[in-house]
Simulated assay, not measured.
Amino acid sequence: MNSRATAAVDRALDDRLRVASAEVDRILAATITVMQRVTPEEPTVSDIIAEAGSSKKAFYRYFSSKDELMLAVLERGVTIIVSYLEHQMAKESQPADQIARWIEGALAQVADPHLMAMSRAVHDQLSASGRGVPGDDIMAPMRNLLVVPVTALGGEDPQRDAEAVFQMTAATMRRYVGSGEQPDDADIGHLVRFCLRGLGVTQ
Score class of each variant (00 low, 15 high):
Ser119Val: 00
Arg120Asn: 06
Ala121Cys: 06
Ala121Ser: 15
Ala121Leu: 12
Val122Asn: 01
Val122Pro: 01
Val122Ser: 06
Val122Lys: 02
His123Ile: 00
Asp124Leu: 07
Asp124Phe: 05
Gln125Val: 14
Gln125Leu: 08
Leu126Asp: 01
Ala128His: 09
Ala128Asp: 12
Ala128Arg: 14
Ser129Ala: 11
Ser129Thr: 15
Ser129Arg: 14
Ser129Gln: 10
Ser129Ile: 12
Gly130Thr: 10
Arg131Val: 08
Arg131Asn: 07
Arg131Trp: 11
Arg131Glu: 12
Gly132Thr: 11
Gly132Pro: 10
Gly132Tyr: 15
Gly132Ser: 12
Gly132Val: 14
Val133Glu: 11
Val133Phe: 15
Val133Leu: 14
Val133Cys: 10
Val133Lys: 07
Val133Ala: 13
Pro134Ala: 04
Asp136Thr: 08
Asp136Ile: 01
Asp136Pro: 01
Asp137Phe: 07
Asp137Arg: 00
Asp137His: 10
Ile138His: 08
Ile138Glu: 01
Ile138Val: 15
Met139Phe: 11
Met139Thr: 00
Met139Glu: 07
Ala140Lys: 10
Ala140Thr: 07
Ala140Asp: 06
Ala140Gln: 02
Pro141Ala: 04
Met142Pro: 00
Met142Thr: 01
Arg143Asn: 00
Arg143Tyr: 04
Arg143Glu: 06
Arg143Met: 00
Asn144His: 13
Leu145Lys: 04
Leu146Asn: 01
Val147Lys: 02
Val147Trp: 02
Val147Phe: 06
Val148Cys: 13
Val148Arg: 15
Val148Ile: 14
Thr151Met: 13
Thr151Gln: 10
Thr151Ala: 15
Thr151Cys: 06
Thr151Trp: 08
Ala152Cys: 11
Ala152Lys: 09
Leu153Phe: 10
Leu153Gly: 05
Gly154Gln: 09
Gly154Ala: 10
Gly154Ser: 07
Gly154Met: 08
Gly154Arg: 09
Asp157Thr: 05
Asp157Lys: 09
Asp157Phe: 05
Pro158Asn: 12
Pro158Leu: 10
Pro158Met: 13
Pro158Arg: 05
Gln159Val: 15
Arg160Cys: 07
Arg160Asp: 11
Arg160Thr: 08
Arg160Glu: 09
Arg160Asn: 14
Arg160Val: 08
Arg160Pro: 02
Asp161Thr: 04
Asp161Tyr: 03
